[in-house]
Design a binder for these strands. Structure first.
Lengths: 128, 128
DNA sequence: CTGTATCCCCCGAGATACTG
DNA sequence: CAGTATCTCGGGGGATACAG
């Protein structure tokens, strides 16, 4: 499928559905968690430690959404103390390449963007 | 660069910068506007009409951010009535492929995700 | 036509405390 | 260990009115 067709998809309405899904994926923690689940099953506490700065609440909520959308599989082991492991499903893994492509883009352009911001500040507050 | 290295980038801190930039790009309107600016210069009002549902305020704000980050070029024509045109810069255009890749992913997986959601609802409220 | 300036509301998200 | 339950707050974002 061509870039142009993709463009149409992003813009066209009923793209409401797309937007909703993109919003979900692009929120504060989702990409981070999906990236962390790459190549391994991880249990709740480990995830909590490996994702720097996330609260227990947001970790739970984000994982529930991912599970609900079928991107993450949640496995509860009937033990005591309880053990719960999370892993990517096939769909979840298929998200990785495009997500990482976007992250890669961000990485590569940080210097240019920051330079552009600095220049912009100069222009808008020259006396300061 | 390998997927694995990208994974590290997304996760690694100082990835704070990356996260900030990703947050900016993945907000409610940015991708939509960038996609709309693909292949043409567009003036303010046209943009306002072509992006369905955006308020004047958010259009202005989003465009300012994009201009500030060097993704969009703003050209004011000294005429009356005023005419302002927006177009992507080289950096802005370089965002298109990964952004559209993500949008494409979302498009392709809408059915599976919705199915997964429906099934999830079933499970969580079986009596309803 | 192309914006600013205000007001206001909702909800994303953190902190904290409690439970099976 | 792996969560829920509340409370709270800031700010993203809509509606509206005004300005150059």
């Amino acid at each position: 499928m061509s870039d142009y067709e993709h463009t149409c998809m992003i813009r066209g309405d009923g793209g409401k559905t797309i937007r909703a899904i993109l919003d979900q994926i692009c929120n504060k923690w989702t990409l981070l968690i999906v990236a962390t689940l790459d190549r391994s099953r991880v249990r709740f506490t480990d995830l909590h430690q490996q994702v720097p700065g996330i609260s227990q609440r947001m970790l739970t909520l984000t994982l529930r959404n991912l599970e609900r959308d079928g991107l993450v599989l949640r496995t509860v082991h009937a033990e005591v103390p309880p053990r719960v492991e999370y892993e990517l499903t096939a769909i979840g893994r298929s998200l990785l390449p495009p997500a990482l492509a976007l992250a890669g883009w961000a990485m590569e352009h940080v210097p240019q963007i920051e330079a552009s911001r600095a220049a912009y500040e100069q222009r808008s507050s020259p006396g300061r």
